[in-house]
Design a protein around this nucleic acid. Structure first.
Length: 584
RNA sequence: GCCGAAAUAGCUCAACUGGUAGAGCAACUGACUUGUAAUCAGUAGGUUGUGGGUUCAAGUCCUAUUUUCGGCACCA
């Protein structure tokens, strides 16, 4: 996927296109007033105030037509420098531009760009003439708060995108189409993975196929974590309010927490697993010899997210974090983080996901602890990142109030980026819960704690995988791995059943299609359901004691013995391979 | 929560300015006995998200509400 903001010439072109759009809107809606029209990763937008009127989705073609007209006219785009006073005079009827100008420094050079009758306050640069702005598309309209503050009024935001060639535009629009086809909400329904209900907005129901996928992910997670020396716990969903006061959540996260009253006591459903994890740590005495102590929990949390934030499996109100808390001596942080980065790398590579790491540092205002410790902690994370052979981009001020963190941004098969894994240093909870370990000198000392997730949330990760694989999961994850299709049920059902039972006995998730339909019909359904392997059983297979199979997405057929087929498949599943090895 | 759009059969969708809901797929029944992406025929399936209202008449208009979608804000 392209990033328009980071491509210099595309950036300029898109910004000029935003001006062109504004000019067209001004022609069609003379009362329109404009706020800002920046370039974003996926194109540009412009925030517009149309007073009582509104531009609707169906009006966009009209605006596009006007834009084409202006583009054809081919006016030059002229840069003008004005003083602040002149600028205020020029835009005296436009409270938005006045707001912008007033926020500029007294002696700064203010530039405007003029094209025909339209002039806009802008830093530039722009393309030379509007003629160069040809291959664009307006994509959507939405509301957006003035200055991004939910206390302010809502303006209309109109999104578009522009390219240098018509081919590039088509490619991008095709990409959007492809992304739409992969929508996990659509595929989740079609493939019987999960459902939603009006009775539980934001609370997904997992169906049988979704559960198989989910269990595979969880099993994989447990296996890998066991190898990494983790131990596992399960802490309660609901705990007394007093605990949340102690952890600080009651004050910092109260409005997103579900609560329940019973026996005149308040209980809160956990929005995070850490406080429960703290109690487990405190349950026993810890020696420095036992550190780092790695404690994992697939923890079900509930968070009351704003209704408008909900989005399929990507944003839900209940989800399972693949959480773990690691308790260490301060001297162990770097080594442990390096180890974690390697671990996360191994987990992601199984799915064919690449990623970038970002370091989020101390927030400007709201943070606990002293700055020295923060600086040190940030340095440890950055060093660990480099030691692990990875670059990390700094994300200033984006850390949690209790510590800095490394965020893993994964890239899917369409090049889209998702935030999943995170490693967070916590300088708060060990203090609040008075955690200790006994050091070699017999003195109780404060451990350092790390929170970390790899999938992030299993629900969200499943959503990402659905879109990443377009619903065609690799064999190890596929709800149904093999579909056995007899060519003619009267003659081939017996041998087909034999093959089916043999696969079942070998732990392969298999279906037998014994309906009396034509092969083409049953095969089509196999493909529609995105089953990785379809086995066809007819006279030839029956006589020679073979299975013939083809894979999803290919029309090549291979014939092998039953035993060879099972061997091949078992290895493929064991290795969690995405690509098949059929050629031999 | 805010702005905008939408909700019709299990699924995907249709029904012009209000005139009393229809198709394909799926399901079921029967015929066909099938070799690599849809065999044919028939049957059944709906208080049009929910509650009010306007009207002789509402899927269609008004209103409230729920949910979903696209954004915004949020996501320590």
């Amino acid at each position: 996927m392209i990033n328009i903001k980071e491509d210099k010439s595309l950036n300029i072109l898109n910004h000029s296109c935003a001006h062109l759009m504004a000019q067209a809107i001004k022609r069609l809606y003379p009362e329109a007033k404009f706020w800002v029209g920046p370039v974003i990763d996926t194109g540009f937008y412009y925030d517009v105030d149309l007073g009582e009127k509104a531009i609707k989705e169906e009006d966009l073609p009209n605006v596009e037509r006007e834009m084409k007209k202006i583009s054809k006219d081919g006016k030059r785009i002229i840069r003008e420098e004005v003083s602040k006073k002149e600028a205020l005079e020029m835009f005296k009827d436009d409270e938005y531009k006045i707001d912008l100008i007033n926020n500029m420094e007294e002696d700064s050079d203010i530039t405007c760009y003029r094209q025909g009758e339209f002039v806009d306050l802008c830093r530039g640069p722009h393309v030379d003439t509007v003629k160069q702005i040809k291959n664009f598309k307006l994509l959507k309209v939405s509301g957006a708060y003035f200055k991004g503050d939910s206390k302010n009024k809502v303006m209309q935001r109109i999104y578009g995108v522009c390219f240098e060639t018509p081919e590039d535009l088509t490619t991008y629009l095709d990409f959007l189409e492809e992304a739409k086809k992969r929508d996990h909400k659509k595929l989740g329904k079609e493939l019987g993975l999960f459902m939603m209900s009006e009775y539980g907005p934001g609370f997904p129901f997992f169906l049988n196929n979704g559960m198989i996928l989910r269990n595979e992910l969880e099993n994989f997670w447990y296996d890998e974590h066991t190898k990494e020396g983790y131990e596992f716990i399960k802490t309660p969903i609901m705990l007394n309010k007093d605990l949340w006061e102690l952890s600080g959540h009651w004050y910092n996260y109260r409005e997103n927490m579900y609560t329940s009253e019973i026996d005149e006591k308040t209980f809160a459903i956990k929005p995070m697993n850490c406080p429960g994890g703290m109690l487990v740590y405190k349950n026993s005495l810890h020696s420095y010899k036992d550190l780092p102590l790695r404690v994992g929990e697939l923890g079900l949390v509930h968070r009351h997210e704003a209704s408008g934030a909900l989005n399929g499996l990507f944003r839900v109100r209940t989800f399972t974090q693949d959480d773990a808390h690691i308790f260490m001596m301060p001297s162990q942080i770097e080594q442990e983080v390096v180890r974690l980065i390697d671990f996360i790398d191994r987990m992601y590579s199984v799915f064919g996901l690449t990623y970038n790491i970002e370091l989020s540092t101390r927030p400007e205002a709201k943070f606990i602890g002293n700055i020295e410790i923060w600086d040190k902690a940030e340095k440890v994370l950055a060093d660990a990142c480099h030691k692990a052979g990875r670059d990390c981009k700094i994300n200033p001020g984006d850390g949690a109030f209790y510590g800095p963190k490394l965020d893993f941004h994964i890239k899917d098969s369409l090049g889209r980026v998702w935030q999943c894994g995170t490693i967070q240093l916590d300088m708060n909870l060990p203090e609040r819960f008075d955690l200790t370990y006994v050091d070699s000198d017999g003195i109780k000392k404060r451990p350092v704690m790390l929170h970390r997730v790899i999938y992030g949330s299993i629900e969200r990760f499943i959503g990402i995988l659905i879109e990443h694989y377009a619903g065609a999961f690799p064999t190890w994850l596929a709800p149904v791995q093999v579909n056995v299709i007899p060519v003619n049920c009267n003659y081939h059902l017996e041998y087909a059943s034999e093959v089916y039972n043999y696969l079942k006995e070998n732990g392969i998730r298999t279906e037998l299609d014994e309906r009396e339909e034509k092969l083409g019909y049953k095969l089509r359904e196999s493909v529609t359901k995105k089953i990785p392997i379809s086995i066809i059983i007819g006279d030839k297979e029956k006589e020679e004691d073979l299975v013939s199979y083809r894979r999803y997405g290919s029309d090549k057929t291979y014939s092998v013995s039953k035993t060879m087929f099972v061997e091949l498949l078992k290895n493929e599943i064991k290795d969690k391979r995405s690509k098949s090895k059929d050629s031999e």
